[in-house]
């Protein structure tokens, strides 16, 4: 398994052949995501349910499939 993993990583020859949708530049988007996370954490309390404990306790569902 380890050998297979190694081989796979060395030969990503088709990684650039994205057909329908542009692939994100993973590293650049990582930076962007970090900044967005900080912004979101700044404002999240305005979005979160006001009483987390009550909200979590009252979220009860019947089992389904």
């Amino acid at each position: 398994m380890a050998e297979r993993t190694q081989k796979q990583k060395q030969t990503p020859e088709r990684a650039d052949q994205v057909v329908e949708h542009a692939a994100p530049a993973v590293n650049e988007s990582g930076e962007k995501l970090r900044a967005e996370l900080d912004d979101l954490l700044d404002e999240i309390d305005e979005v979160l349910e006001t009483n987390a404990e009550d909200f979590v306790k009252s979220y009860v569902q019947k089992g389904g499939q």
Binding site: K9, R14, V18, P24, S29, G30
Partner: peptide, 25 residues
């Protein structure tokens, strides 16, 4: 679509392997 799935499959595995946060999107 199949070729695109293979390409993204590889990208997501590479991302998870090197730094999972890189595929947070």
């Amino acid at each position: 679509v199949g070729a695109d799935v293979l390409s993204r499959w590889e990208q997501v595995l590479s991302g998870l392997e090197s730094d999972p946060d890189s595929v947070a999107d």
